[in-house]
Amino acid sequence: MTLRILLVEDDLTLRYTLQQALEIEGFVVNLADTLAGAKCVLNQYKNEQISMESCLLLVDLGLPDGDGADLINWSRAHAPMPVLVISARDDDSSKVDLLDAGADDYLVKPFSINELKARIRVALRRQTLSGSAVSEEFIFGSLEISLPRHQVLRDGVKVHLTPKEFKLLARLLRQAGQVVTHRQLLQDVWGPDCVDHVHYLRLYMAQLRGKLERDPTAPELLLTETGVGYRFCEI
C-alpha cells in the first residue's frame, strides 16, 4: 500500500528538504504551500478515491493565507486523516489546543528528521490499526499488559494497580507513541469536572512509574511532555 503524505509548508527550502527526506523513506509526497492549495490536493484525493487510511497531513501552522489550524478542522470534516503539526511557535498553549482539537501530534521547529519519521510511523500505524481490531495486549521488554484481563505483569510477576492507575495506563496505551494532553487524560479518567486538576496526574503518574519503570527517575515508558501531557513511549 502506498503511503501518501501531504506536506503543507510555505518555506521552500524546508519543504524541499522534508520532501527529499520523506521520499527516501518511500512515501509519496504531495506538496502545497497555502491553505487553498492544500484543500485542492485533499479534494483531488477524494475525487481519485484515494483511501484516506494511507494518507497523512503534515501541516505548518503559519501559512500565507491563514492558520494551519483551519486546515486541521477542514480536514476533520472533509477528508479525515492523521494530522501532524509542525510549528515554529514554542507557545505550548497553541500546541495543547491543536492536540485537543484532534491533531495527532506536533513537532516544534527545529526538529530532526528522525523525530519526524518516528511520529509519522506512529500516526500511520494507529490509522491502519483503527479499522482492524485495536491491540489490547502489549509487551514492552519485561512488561506485559493485558487490557481485557486488567492485568500487568513485570518479569512474570503480577503488578497491582488501582482501578484509576489502570484506567490512566490504558488511556495512554490507547494512543501509544502519541502525546495525550493533560485535559484528555483527566477528562477520560476522572471525568469532565476534573479537567483542570493536573496535580492528580502528577500523583498517579508518579505511582505508575514507581510500579512499572525500572528507575522511576529515568522513565523509559511513561514520558512527560513538559507543559502538554504524557506519552507512552513506543518501543
Partner: peptide, 19 residues
C-alpha cells in the same frame, strides 16, 4: 503559566534528554 509540577518529572525529562 503556573501549574502543579513534580520535580521528579521535570528532572526525569531533562535527564532523559541529556542522556
Amino acid at each position: 503559566k503556573l501549574n502543579w509540577e513534580s520535580v521528579e518529572e521535570i528532572l526525569g525529562t531533562v535527564g532523559l534528554r541529556a542522556r
